[in-house]
Design a protein around this nucleic acid. Sequence first.
DNA 1: CTGCATCCTACCAGATACTG
DNA 2: CAGTATCTGGTAGGATGCAG
Lengths: 133, 133
Amino acid sequence: MATQTAPQRRASERERFDAYLATCPARKLLDRISDKWVSLLLNALADGPRRYSELSRTLAGVSQKMLTQTLRTMERDGLVARTVTPAVPVRVDYALTPLGASLLPIMTAIKAWAETHIHEVDEAQAAYDAGRF
Amino acid sequence: MATQTAPQRRASERERFDAYLATCPARKLLDRISDKWVSLLLNALADGPRRYSELSRTLAGVSQKMLTQTLRTMERDGLVARTVTPAVPVRVDYALTPLGASLLPIMTAIKAWAETHIHEVDEAQAAYDAGRF
DNA sequence: CTGCATCCTACCAGATACTG
DNA sequence: CAGTATCTGGTAGGATGCAG
C-alpha cells in the first residue's frame, strides 16, 4: 500500500494549515473585524451607548437577524456590553467595553490608510482594466 | 396611492445604504485585507519576491484557484507586481509594490493588538459560554 | 510551471412570521 | 421593543481536467 495519494496528502496538509490558522491571533482578529457589520457597529458605538432600535436605524441596511447575531458575537468576544432595563416595554442598551474601545485606534488607522491610498488603488484598477481591452 | 409599503421603504433604504458602503474607503479596504488569503500573501511577500510555486507551498492550505484569484485581485488593486520570465518552463514572480508594502504597518498593528488582547477575548468567550449552562 | 474553465457543494445572509 | 425560528437563494470556494 502506498503511503498517501496526492489528494490525501494535500487534504491533510490543508487540515494542519487550518488548525494553524485557527490558532493565529491575527487571523482570529481579522476574521472578526472584517465582518461587514462589526466595523460599522464599532463606529456606531464609538461615542456612547445606543439602544437596539437606534442601532437598527443607524445601520439602515442591516436585517435584525444580522444585527442581533453580530451584537451577540461581539458580546461573546467581550467587545460590547449588553444592558437590559426591565420595564414595559423592555429597554436594551449596548455599549463598547474597554476592550472594544481599544479596537478603535486600529479602525482609525485603517480608515486613515484607506483615505490616503484608496485613489491609488482605484487608479491601479483602472490601469489594469484598461490593459485588458 | 399610498406612498410606500414598509418592505418597499426598507428595500430602498437598504439600497442607498449599500451604495454608501460601496463608496466608503475604509470598507473597501476592509473588504480587501479581510480576505483570508490576502493577509497571508501580504506576509509571505513581506521580505521579498516569491515564485508562484513557492507561494503555493508556503500557504499550504490554499487551492491554486484561490491563490491565482487572490493574486490577480491584488495585482489589479496595485498591491503586488507580477513578473513573467519567458522560458521553458515559464517562471512567474510576485512582489509587493510600494503601495502593497505600505499596508504592512497596518498588518503589524493588527497583529500587535491581536497578540496583546486575544487572551482577553478568549476569556470573555469562556465566561460568556460558562453563563449559558 | 503557471493558470484557466467547469462543475459542484456547503455555508451564510436575507425574508418572513411569530413570541415575551 | 427586542428578539427567535425557519426557509431559501446566492455565492464563495474546492476538485478536477485541460492548455500555453
